[in-house]
Design a protein around this nucleic acid. Structure first.
Lengths: 128, 128
DNA sequence: ATGGACCTTCCCATGATAGGAAGGTCAAGA
DNA sequence: TCTTGACCTTCCTATCATGGGAAGGTCCAT
């Protein structure tokens, strides 16, 4: 399986597969004599794991941690849960931050006429 | 007023003030004979505007747009409101995305024992 | 044998910010 | 007056995750 097929099968672009290899997130695969990377289904499975991890908003370093736990048959599920819940807290903090921004802006926009006249509470607020 | 004082007065770091100048977001200030940047209160005001804009999550390009509207005395408030409401929609989309991630993870974490045992629905989900 | 679809490595770009090196300037105190 | 330390200058580097593209090699079907 070439890198293009592994990309199609995993949903991770060939570009990112090479990148993940270069930073040691995934192991270097076998090569053909011509130097082409060759992937087995096991490696595609790992790529899918990484992809799902990233889609849930984990950083690559967190993906590295989760991959290690996944491969460690003797892991404690508490360790996985701890990583997951910490990430939930990070997400919640980010959400609260964005909601505060949106709330402020919605309020300002409500008090702005939004017509041809130049006076605008949004700009007045930005100007302090 | 030196760049350090302008930074303290505006809340924008000296590093970022120089960067904003380099990308043309703010105008190049006067210089002393020795080459030091010299800021007037007007320019500090502009910096504060940019800072507030950034704190509300607008991109630098959006800040550029809002700055231009701020300086245009003949603007229509509708133009400002449009930019603001578009940004609210962007924020809402981002919030929804993060909430989906957090929701999935909270659900997975709830079904995970979180003890010494290795079986973990979080990892099972990531593995697909 | 040729063409096109693939692969390789290497470099560059993004967006916003920070860190640091090497060197010049300024003001205050000895 | 000299020194010292706090400031300033420019330039280069890094972050994080991803994509784009060039130059060149490989593979397979026609």
């Amino acid at each position: 399986m070439n890198i293009g097929q592994a990309a199609a099968a995993s949903g991770v672009s060939a570009k990112m597969i090479r990148y993940y290899e270069s930073i040691g997130l995934i192991a270097a695969p076998a090569r053909t004599e011509a130097g082409y990377r060759v992937y087995a289904s096991d490696e595609v499975h790992t790529l899918r794991f990484v992809r799902r991890t990233r889609m849930l908003g984990f950083s690559i370093e967190e993906a590295r941690e989760l991959l290690a736990l996944w491969r460690d048959r003797g892991r404690a599920s508490a360790d996985v849960k701890r990583v997951a819940l910490q990430h939930v807290r990070d997400l919640e903090a980010k959400i609260a931050e964005l909601q505060a921004m949106a709330g402020t802006l919605r309020h300002l926009a409500k008090t702005c006429h939004g017509d041809d006249r130049p006076d605008c509470p949004i700009l007045e607020d930005l100007a302090g």
